[in-house]
């Protein structure tokens, strides 16, 4: 039986004496598009930092594709792609050079080819020879996605991927996520505190409130459970205890 894409068991984290995550238990199966919802400071980024091996949790175990994020860090990093919220790559290098660099760091055998193919897949080949410093926020986001998938990971972590994007950029990003999931079979784990674009792409949602996972279920089950709520915003507010 295949191991879950993401598994967290009793994961807690503190910054100094302040608890940020409290005993999170979470399982995400392969092929899901999971969305972590929560207000600013709820602990969403900390959870992603732990799952991407950037942060060692204060307590509990976290596994990605069956590999422990601390003990098997190398195997975890082979299988994940990561796009931080405020994506910045090397401004003095072209998009292609940046992609080749990150492909090399992921051990890709032919980085140049991988970079070209990734840009082609994202319909962004024209951006390849241009320096990053000349890009708009939307273009940077496309190259950010490209660096995250250039080594064809199994699980893609996106941290506030829509921040700074205009409506057209958000729509384009949503379509890209959908394609990556359907065509390449990537499991997607994303954080956001914005709700408007959530419902149309994710298969499962989880809600974090002050470091606690207060809800996790599929979108279909969520819609069934809250039949009287007009939108996901209303459902989210009810979950967080702010009935509208």
């Amino acid at each position: 039986m295949e191991e879950p894409a993401v598994e967290m068991q009793g994961v807690s984290h503190r910054y100094g004496s302040a608890p940020v995550l409290r005993e999170i238990d979470l399982t995400i199966e392969h092929g899901e598009i999971f969305r972590f919802l929560g207000h600013n400071g709820a602990g969403k980024t900390t959870a992603i930092n732990i799952l991407t091996t950037l942060l060692v949790p204060s307590a509990g175990n976290a596994r990605v594709c069956g590999h422990d994020v601390i003990a098997d860090r190398s195997k975890v990093t082979e299988r994940i792609g990561y796009l931080p919220s405020d994506v910045r790559l090397y401004d003095h290098m072209t998009a292609s050079e940046n992609l080749e660099f990150f492909a090399k760091l992921s051990g890709v055998s032919d980085p140049r080819r991988a970079a070209a193919e990734t840009l082609d897949y994202l319909d962004s080949s024209e951006l390849g020879p241009r320096r990053m410093s000349t890009f708009s926020t939307g273009m940077r986001q496309r190259i950010g996605i490209a660096q995250a998938i250039v080594h064809q990971p199994s699980v893609l972590f996106l941290d506030e991927p829509t921040s700074g994007l205009d409506p057209s950029g958000v729509r384009q990003l949503r379509e890209t996520i959908f394609r990556l999931n359907r065509e390449l079979g990537m499991t997607v784990f994303m954080n956001t505190h914005l709700l408007s674009e959530v419902a149309r792409v994710c298969t499962t949602i989880g809600v974090l409130n002050h470091g606690e996972l207060i809800y996790k279920d599929s979108m279909a089950a969520t819609n069934e459970r809250f039949p009287n709520e007009a939108s996901l915003e209303d459902i989210y507010e009810r979950m967080e205890g702010h009935p509208s």
């Binding site: 991407t52 091996t53 950037l54 190398s74 990093t77 082979e78 994940i80 990561y82 931080p84 910045r88 790559l89 090397y90 990150f102 760091l105 992921s106 051990g107 660096q147 972590f157």
Partner: peptide, 9 residues
Amino acid sequence: IGRLIFSRQ
């Protein structure tokens, strides 16, 4: 960018 680098191998 360090975050991207150290999320790699």
